[in-house]
């Protein structure tokens, strides 16, 4: 297992290197000069050339990339061209906000999604199943910003129960978490139902019931545990999505998280900040996927990694 994890971590480094190179190349291809943007209004050609020199943008592209790599090894992505904030500081600042939103949305989505999926599977074909699956379709289909606005108007303005925007305390995260988590809850509910229905048909469930095991135990211990692999796979990807921020939700609720940072850095062609943000996003996805893979071995003892693996 250790060997497997080491190998995956090594692969992670290769992936991060590849992504950084692709990002760098793409940014050179996409039209838009950050210095032109910074000095848009009145600067002349000479001034622009001087600022390009100050930012190290007048050296050759391979040299620029090497300079970036040298810094990145020490987690030094430089300073934002625009805000002058150290990139790693900006990432940590936004991550601290995003992680709160992601944690609450994740809990909301998993608890609600799995519960609804199980309830629908157990009551297959009954009205509960139809109602829950209809709601889950709405959850999956409705745009999160629309849900956000509806929640703001009802719970923030009309009923005056919760704050409309901001991120000063846990209560501020309730509406954004619901708005962000609804879509994920919907898809988790659907995959849970499908996966549970597959498992419930299996012989070992029939056997467990025949042995007189209580129905609750059959569902929780035998059915749900065996239905977890597809759910964990989906949940892992969704956790990755949540941890890398949601630009729309962050914008509507005025939450300065990773999503907004990524979009702003792209629209400003803020190379250091964008490279840093992309590295962070890639790192989150690679690590989350690794954790998901590792978790398979614990959920299903038949899955083995490393020596002796099939």
């Amino acid at each position: 297992m250790f060997q497997y994890i080491s190998k995956r971590l090594f692969q992670t480094l290769l992936v991060l290197f590849g992504i950084s190179l692709i990002t760098f190349i793409l940014l050179q291809v996409v039209p838009g000069d950050p210095v032109e943007l910074m000095l848009e209004k009145r600067a002349d050609a000479q001034t622009i050339a001087r600022v390009r020199h100050e930012l190290g943008l007048d050296v050759s592209l391979p040299q620029q990339y090497l300079n970036f790599l040298k810094g990145a090894i020490h987690l030094d992505f430089g300073k934002s061209y625009f805000t002058k904030e150290v990139v790693i500081t900006a990432l940590v600042r936004c991550f601290m906000v995003t992680v709160k939103l992601a944690s609450m949305s994740f809990l909301f989505a998993v608890v609600l999604g799995v519960a609804c999926g199980m309830a629908a599977a157990i009551n297959r074909g009954k009205w509960i199943d139809s109602v829950l699956m209809t709601i889950s379709i709405v959850g999956v289909s409705a745009p999160s910003f629309w849900i956000a606005i509806i929640l703001q108007i009802i719970f923030g303005l009309k009923l005056d129960l919760l704050p409309i925007s901001g991120f000063e305390g846990p209560v501020f995260f309730i509406l954004p978490s619901i708005a962000l988590g609804t879509r994920y809850a919907g898809s988790i509910a659907r995959i849970t139902r499908t996966s549970m229905l597959d498992v419930i048909k299996q012989d070992y469930i029939r056997t467990a019931r025949a042995k007189g095991v209580k129905e609750g135990l059959v569902i929780m211990k035998h059915a749900l545990k065996n239905a977890m692999i597809p759910i964990i796979t989906l949940v892992g990807t969704e956790l990755g999505n949540m941890l890398t921020g949601s630009m729309l939700i962050e914008r509507v609720f005025s939450i300065p998280g990773i999503g907004k940072l990524a979009v702003d850095s792209m629209s400003n062609r803020d190379l250091p900040l964008l490279e840093g943000t992309v590295m962070y996003i890639a790192f989150v996805f690679v690590i989350v996927n690794l954790l998901v893979d590792i978790s398979y071995a614990f959920i299903d003892p038949r899955i083995r990694y490393g020596k002796g693996a099939n």
Binding site: I149, G156, I164, G166, E250, V252, F253, S254
Partner: peptide
């Protein structure tokens, strides 16, 4: 000065008296 990115959210906060 309260930073609120979204124009609609700004007006909702205004309507709420914040």
């Amino acid at each position: 000065y309260k930073f609120i990115e979204d124009a609609n959210t700004q007006v909702l906060e205004y309507q709420k008296g914040n």
